[in-house]
Design a protein around this nucleic acid. Structure first.
Lengths: 207, 207
DNA sequence: TGTACATCAGTGAACGCGCGTTCACTGATGTAC
DNA sequence: TGTACATCAGTGAACGCGCGTTCACTGATGTAC
């Protein structure tokens, strides 16, 4: 259990690793009450410390949320990369699997997903978060480029990657927001993801 | 200015039409601070009444938000219908125009858009809201069916309509959440919408 | 037309609540000699 | 090994705040006779 980060002083002096435990508590709260419903006080309570303790590790409330978002983006990117790597390079299946990882993440931790992709003030100014976000899209662009036989920097690749992203993003939100119930015939994720990958990457370019 | 609703007693006895003015105030607040940032107290302040006055028109806070969401869904459906009607029946342009109306709505009132499509407790149990939501998707299904030459109730129509919805929904959220900045080459909405309509409705079915 | 009454939208004061953040503190740990 | 000192994570009490909701009320309006 006690996986100590390499550069920590030893293993724990006072509490152990309150910072990590607070982040874990905040993740739980964000899942339970949404990004706006979380409170520093309750996170401290869950971690078993006083309500003032978090301020030894974070400047203020928004900084805690930013830390949780950063950690979430890391996990999302890793999941997407792993999914893409599990399929043949350049295949439609690799693209669809990546989309599946994205949707799975949204379903598994909708709160963090909302936090990561919502418009929270301060996130745009946080360079680390923006870089991590760009890294996620980079994974998509790589897979799309391999599939199209184009350069990852090609504008056409970017356009197709954005289409894929929009679709998967929309499907994720509609799913976690329970808006798919109005659909009578509901296909499974994989059919949708393969169909959309084929539609976006298989068809000739626009114009 | 004073557009009196037909079934109101006369024009106004005490305040005039506090209910409508509260809804307008809440819309402003939802745009300014998001669906979770709105408070009954501030809405009352904006409408120029005491903080207890809203409770003469709404049971509690969630009910006010539900009223705003219902009104928003009405406007969204009307905008989508008007956009579709402005183009040739059964054309890809009609579908794209509908998508454009959807994106425009999200851009124009992102707060209400989030409120309408977010997962707010109580919304699922509100039959009126669910019906209005289904009506919106119905407009999409109609246009998709006309374009495909299929019945609106055909499962294939539903599947295609859902793909279109996912894409436009995702694009809307990525736009209002400022997540498109990571894209270098950004095409305009219309190119995207036409391309996606063609990809989803023009290509042969999945499988 | 005038009077008595019912209605009910809006008042203003009050309640209890949980919050974010601050502050001086304490006490365990690590370090220099 | 022992002692004196610096560090700093966590304490607990306190602050001021805005909130949602309630309550008895008041006074303008509409209505019945």
């Amino acid at each position: 259990m006690a996986d100590v980060t390499g550069d920590a002083p030893r293993s724990g002096y006072h509490h152990g690793d309150l910072r990590a435990q607070l982040i874990a508590a905040v993740r739980e709260l964000v899942e339970a009450h949404g990004p706006d419903g979380f409170s520093v006080a309750e996170a401290a309570r869950r971690a078993g410390v006083s309500s003032a303790a978090p301020y030894k590790h974070f400047r203020d409330r928004p900084e805690i949320l930013r830390a949780v978002a950063a950690e979430g983006l890391d996990r999302l990117r890793q999941a997407m990369q792993a999914a893409a790597d599990s399929r043949p390079h350049g295949s439609l299946e690799a693209v669809a699997a990546m989309g599946q990882a994205y949707v799975d993440f949204a379903r598994r931790e909708p709160g963090v997903f909302r936090l990561v992709f919502g418009l929270t003030e301060g996130h745009e100014a946080d360079q680390e978060l923006m870089l991590k976000g760009a890294a996620c899209l980079g994974v998509v662009a790589q897979a799309a480029a391999a599939c199209l036989g184009l350069d990852p920097g090609d504008p056409e690749t970017g356009r197709r990657a954005y289409m894929l992203w929009s679709f998967v993003h929309g499907h994720s939100f509609l799913t976690i927001d329970r808006k798919t119930s109005v659909m009578r015939e509901q296909a499974d994720d994989w059919s949708y993801l393969m169909a959309i990958s084929r539609a976006v990457l298989g068809a000739p370019g626009p114009g």
